[in-house]
Amino acid sequence: MFFLFLATLPMTINTNVVFPIQLPRQVEHWSRPDSAQTITAQTIFDYMDGAGELYLGFRFDSLQVVEYTAEGSYNLLVEIYYMQESDDAFGLLSLDLDGERIDWGAAPEASSPSALYGAGLLRLWAGPVYARVMAFQETETARRAVLELGRVIAAQCRSARPPKLIQMVQPLFTNAPLKYFRSHLVLNSIFYLASQNILDLDLSVEGVYAHEGQMKVLLLHYPEARRAAAAAQFFLQSYLPDHQSARCGGFYPLESGYCACFHAGVYLILLFDCPDIDSGRQWVQTIECRLRTGDRL
């Protein structure tokens, strides 16, 4: 490749999560400045306005930004998001799985690094790192440079598996990619549920969104069974106010199919737009079975 050399960028990332990624001084004909910009949770809104909520919706640690420049060419932007756990970096990539899958042959199937490329933008999950490497104008040279920067980032991160919750239920949803989230803002960006946080989501709760045909499934994992139970009650009161006796395990006909909420230990399984009760029950039983066999129940 076209690196002159690798050097650690001077920066002050306050994290024990991962060592600072080393980026090349030059890739193709682009070169980077000596210093990187470091963004924290306190400064992320200054950097990207409301987009910062997306990253704070996961367990965000810090962000390293480097812009490569070259005379006569548009810049390359490298954003390396250091998340507290690999699950969070996975979640960011899972929100949009469209794109050309890039395989560096470094990890087994369904493990990190996992990268998707499209129109000049590479999105990458590599252990606790989520990265965006973007060419402001896509050319063959820019594509090579973007992919090479991605490869360099991925090579410095440990391999990781998807979140355990995803691993449990992924085999059930072979036709639909699963999305992993922790915040109600992020949930609303993939499946608009409610203006308020009626499922008591926060960074301590894991969520998986899937759909099967017209039916949408939310699987939520709370830190305590008591909290899951309380969240279920609040959801039923808030979402089904016209069904006064709504309870966990019941199926309620709404504007577009049935809605149901099942509570199982630290888990909630919610179905929306379910076409019929029998298939809905079958789905819930299958999901519960997967959680049981995975020793999650």
Binding site: F45, D49, G50, L54, H184, L185, S195
Partner: peptide, 28 residues
């Protein structure tokens, strides 16, 4: 388009005048 407000063009253009842009994210 804007992931927190659906569209982020004309009406959102004055959000900084509020002094509290986060108060207008999501359904708000």
């Amino acid at each position: 388009a804007h992931w927190l407000t659906g569209i982020g063009t004309v009406l959102k253009n004055y959000i900084m005048f509020s002094g509290n842009p986060q108060a207008y994210h999501d359904s708000r």
